[in-house]
Design a protein around this nucleic acid. Sequence first.
DNA 1: GTTCCGCATGAATCGATAG
DNA 2: ACTATCGATTCATGCGGAA
Lengths: 286, 286
Amino acid sequence: MSRLFEFDSCVSKIFNQNCLDGLVALESNSIDLIITSPPYADQRSATYTAIKPDHYVEWFLPITSELFRVLKPTGTFILNIKEKVANGERHTYVLELILEMKKQGWLWTEEFMWHKKNCYPGKWPNRFRDSWERLLQFNKERKFNMYQEEVMVPVGDWAQNRLKNLSETDKIRDPSKVGSGFGKNISNWVGRDKAYPTNVLHLATECSNKSHSAAFPKSLPEWFIKLFTEKGDTVLDPFLGSGTTCLVASSMKRNSIGFELEEKYFNICVESLAQLNDSNKQLCLF
Amino acid sequence: MSRLFEFDSCVSKIFNQNCLDGLVALESNSIDLIITSPPYADQRSATYTAIKPDHYVEWFLPITSELFRVLKPTGTFILNIKEKVANGERHTYVLELILEMKKQGWLWTEEFMWHKKNCYPGKWPNRFRDSWERLLQFNKERKFNMYQEEVMVPVGDWAQNRLKNLSETDKIRDPSKVGSGFGKNISNWVGRDKAYPTNVLHLATECSNKSHSAAFPKSLPEWFIKLFTEKGDTVLDPFLGSGTTCLVASSMKRNSIGFELEEKYFNICVESLAQLNDSNKQLCLF
DNA sequence: GTTCCGCATGAATCGATAG
DNA sequence: ACTATCGATTCATGCGGAA
């Protein structure tokens, strides 16, 4: 079972299928960006078959191997994941996964941090609420496409506070006293209204009243799609869930491919993409 | 060469010595909190003998072994560390270190994230400014001392509006026993003004004039000393640097022990601790 | 149209109890 | 001893309907 949605200048193909089965049918070196949030170990057992932490790596590696094949040499793979606590400790399957993926040829280029402003509540005697997740960036080659200007942000509190009262030493070049090599000529930033972001994303999870809770908020795939693709490129999400990735990609005129095993979630994807098709003109203003 | 500083109700001992040599002289099970920021691989090569990333783990493991011995069973080890980017990739020595430390008997209890709020908005062709660091928590036993009430934070602004007018359902509602199990009993929140923090620390890096490059801001050891120790406990920093840990510990009436190999930095430690001794009364109001 | 305000929801974890 | 299930605990946000 699969569905094809044609929009003004892009298409979205979604498959109600195990992603491993579906991936083998994809052409090699055809994807510009893979972004996904796979089922975490032992989570979502109500809807998906729970994967035991001790078997997580061996379950996931065949999939990353196929993802490596289908990704373009200039493409990027963003993996949203966080290890669970087991027996009072953080489990090590994510660390092991990174080490094993490197053996497959992946470069572990970067680790972005997603700070979840509205994290899960709760209180325990030995730990606080977990308020961040990893966004691991992998690449096939050292040179990859990255459109940094597309995600510049308004200069925020940092600049406002820092630039308000410039000391005399700030206005002239200040050879870094700590020898970091990062020469800071603060006055260069006066008058600018845009700055490059950092590798920390501050986003809240969306808690809608609908039947499915999205793994990540729309702004998360949106940010990475802006950063790593151009219009007309192709985005892949092997664990589509409620379909956020394909929905956002279509809104941004990127082609997209998605796999979702559970029929219930697949149907939600179909609905939201169909709705986007209807209201194409409005949403493409995105 | 070593120095002993006696304060009103605590002492600080610092040694101008390789920490491995010094640690063997310490008593087993005598330390309540170890907090340190070791020399990063290949970093600070101007000041420390550079440790090559590929040899980082084998260099550090003998030290963590001694740290395991000297830590009390109820104690905690906080390790501030971040992997270096080498050849366009994040190096894996931190991941490997965690796995090897577990073999020594350490429990990897938690990974706090330090978000460095004021890092400069720079960039490289293929990455953004790195604005976070790992704060790895290790323990010897599943039960350890943790004084969570000491680090509570003000409740967010939402509470003022939310709790202003409680509806009847807010007061009466039974915690739901279905689904996630999270019943909300909003009336529990009336009158509360403090909440427990999360595992993300938003701290600015200190722009001090110190000539040492890897010093963390005072608020960082301060937070962990509050969280994991009581007055009269003993804090250890095997890589003292400019001495922040001992300085803060002394201000907070905790005993402290520190090692610093470089004479230049050791002298800075001596100076700042001597100054604290002079101005003891003011600073102990901390 | 906008703003305001009520409300459901969330990739959770621990400890005790039962099988 | 080892595993499975269950109750208790908790905070900040987006959404949607009302004003």
